[in-house]
Design a protein around this nucleic acid. Structure first.
Lengths: 196, 196
DNA sequence: GGTTGTTCTTAACATACATCAATGCACATA
DNA sequence: TATGTGCATTGATGTATGTTAAGAACAACC
């Protein structure tokens, strides 16, 4: 749990004894590729800090189609915040796209860390606002931009994911079919668009 | 400012002297229909509590088309949270759809109220999480649902707004053209869909 | 009280994206 | 080596939604 350790030291900015007390309370769990961490109907009991590997959160609609809400790679936290916070059943699946090690963070961990460390509490607030900002941008793109524009934006935002995530999942994140994404890419290649 | 008074008393749950101290710090402002409260490039300096009337927050894309991010009627707060929190220029316009009275809430007001009142601080956290939950549902709808489904959902969620907001703005909120919304409504009428 | 602007509707036509089906490819595994 | 399975691509076709343009109903304003 190197990454989580670094994360906690950076964000909480506390002394060694407090750190040791906190770190004791989290568990690491290995999630083999394809395994599911959360299903619709369940209450999301933990935040999943991705130590290494790759998670996704998604819904499945009445026709059985998947719609990806979020990816999470190293150092990201994946969680259904509203389910956790309001203690209500989630709409989401969360599963592993790659073999993944996650650090399980329980809500009381966050509460305690916020007690101990002003800096951690502030960081938490920042995270919430980042989340809101990010979602708002995504809504705006979905309202206003073509599939091509949304894809280009995705590449810029997540160059690493573009390589690691299967194309059909990127399509799902963008709200289009895999076939459409394939065509978008073909067009971009024609126009001599470069990924970097 | 009846509505705001009630709001603050409900949420903060504090004694009369504290209440008086707080309430002194906000100002009411009348915004005639069509007037603009925030423009892209400006930092959003206040949260706007809608005492009465109706606000909207929206972006304008490179083709000059508007995309509505949020409506806010009585007792709602309209604000570009990320602009306010991160002190960065907003992407949004906020203006008045009807003659509106807003209560201007400065960030330090929220900070002070949170100091004084645990209950207010908790309420603020709830609000943030509500915001995230709402945005996530909207993203999911935009990814997965047809224009018709999104419109039906809008009616259920905001029956009051459906009557007060011009149709072309609802279309903009849904991410379709006014013409398309008109057709969707015609179809629904054919199918004998009732608004209630 | 006419004039002007705004909203909504309708129709004809255009287009982005979806669907369906087939193929090829890479990679795993028997 | 054979054989399967998942993923990406491509083509033919379908459909939801966009575009353009016009007119009607209505409100707003001199």
């Amino acid at each position: 749990m190197q990454n989580f350790t670094k994360y906690l030291k950076d964000k909480a900015n506390i002394g060694e004894p407090e750190f040791q007390a906190l770190i004791k309370k989290v568990k690491v769990k290995h999630i083999p590729k394809g395994n599911v961490l959360l299903r619709p109907g369940e209450v999301c009991q933990h935040s999943f800090f991705v130590e290494n590997g790759l998670l996704r959160a998604y819904t499945v609609d009445s026709l059985g189609k998947e719609h990806i809400i979020q990816f999470g790679s190293e150092n990201w936290i994946v969680v259904d915040r509203s389910s956790t916070f309001f203690n209500e059943p989630s709409d989401l699946f969360i599963d592993a796209i790659e073999d993944t090690n996650v650090v399980l963070i329980a809500p009381h961990f966050i509460a305690e860390a916020s007690e101990i460390s002003t800096s951690f509490r502030k960081y938490n607030e920042i995270t919430l606002h980042n989340h809101i900002r990010h979602q708002q941008k995504r809504i705006n793109l979905l309202l206003s931009a073509s599939a091509e524009t949304r894809y280009i934006n995705f590449i810029k935002l997540y160059p690493d994911l573009t390589l690691r995530v299967p194309q059909w999942m990127i399509a799902s994140y963008l709200g289009i079919t895999p076939e459409s994404l394939s065509r978008v890419r073909k067009e971009l290649a024609k126009k001599n668009f470069k990924q970097n």
